[in-house]
Design a protein around this nucleic acid. Structure first.
Lengths: 209, 209
DNA sequence: GCATACATTGGACAATCGGTCAATATGTGA
DNA sequence: TCACATATTGACCGATTGTCCAATGTATGC
């Protein structure tokens, strides 16, 4: 049983898969070289043979988490929606459903997020991937601005995409701590009431604090 | 210098303050009994004399983080706003400003948040404190519903308060990773455009993926 | 001043961590 | 089949952790 050789790519994949399983269950600080090795049924020495340092393993796992957590897949059903704003709303709903349906991965994602506050390389990687994720929304937000320019005065498509992403992250955080008590439809309805159609905001702003 | 006695309440306060400074800089997993002791200029044995286990220290620190992070203070300027919806908007802006101005505390708060996914006691404590935080918004959201019932059909004041809190958390997360590239005014304007006044949502829902 | 109570210290311990390395098992080409 | 390259193992190391505890220092009542 022990000692079966394998190619480097196969081993790295096997180790990374085990690392993801460990981290998604025990958190980043529970991500131990020995725990990963045990999960992959390998010796801990072998893990450090393929990933020379633990940092490299953590970093590679971050790549994996980002590429799966921040991948926007526009289904055909959604792409077929003619009205751009409705399409964006469908995207929002889809992404929030997806993230709230994967609480473990979402939690791991935000653990890296918090870690990025102290670790600049991690922060840079997350920021770059968030940029890519935002860019995936741009096609739709540009359509929106073109279709209804009057609705979004002074708002760029970039900013619109940024808000969409931020909105999704906020809901994901909410769903992370309390998955049951979170209903996306109610959420959207209430936000619509709070934000939509301000009765007297344009003429005399009181904001200056 | 060493060995000066002090009352238990004073020592606990001193230790907790040091624990907060350590955790807000190094994160929860950087919160070490010895690090806290060093920060408070005490022996590590004394820390465990007042907090019998490290868990109790971490737990007491959570109380402190929650009571400061989730405290809603309605300033007189805000309370004086007659229009309830404008008052809620001002509250949102105030809280987002406050949280984004304290990135360290916010990060620590979300670290506990993520930790709550695995630790049920932590999760319960955070949920309870979030309930209290939500309740502080209820006075305003009830005023809103009373003033403009037509605007929020089928939305309760509880739900409205919940959305406000979730909204704040989402912005806080956003400001945590990238404090510079976050502008609350632009955020609110863009959300208003996305959510407000849906042109055709009520009759034929297409959501079912 | 002295005895008592207890806050405080720092050493010791086992457990666990990341990391190194000699020894070994395994596959491959001739 | 044999030599060679290397993937794999497990022992080992130093550092750090939480926790315990005997020794010591400090305040207080008498």
């Amino acid at each position: 049983m022990p000692g079966q050789k394998a190619s480097e790519t196969v081993r790295r994949e096997q180790i990374l898969r085990a690392a993801y399983e460990v981290a998604s269950r025990k958190g980043i600080d529970g991500l131990t070289v020995r725990a990963v090795a045990a999960r992959a049924k390998l010796s801990h020495g072998l893990v450090l043979f393929h990933f020379k340092r633990k940092d490299q393993l953590v970093d590679a796992l971050l790549d994996r988490v980002l590429s799966t957590s921040l991948k926007l897949h526009m289904s055909e059903d959604v792409a077929r929606i003619a009205h751009p704003l409705d399409r964006l709303r469908a995207l929002l709903r889809q992404e929030m459903d997806r993230l709230s349906g994967e609480p473990r991965r979402t939690r791991l994602f935000f653990e890296y997020w918090a870690l990025g506050t102290r670790h600049s390389a991690t922060r840079a990687k997350i920021s770059a991937e968030l940029d890519r994720y935002r860019a995936a929304f741009r096609a739709t937000t540009e359509d929106i601005l073109q279709a209804e320019p009057a609705r979004f005065t002074g708002v760029t498509s970039d900013r619109l995409a940024a808000v969409a992403v931020s909105f999704i992250n906020g809901c994901a955080v909410q769903a992370m701590i309390d998955p049951e008590h979170f209903d996306i439809n109610e959420y959207l309805a209430a936000v619509q009431g709070i934000i939509g159609r301000p009765p007297r905001q344009q003429h005399g702003e009181h904001a200056d604090g």
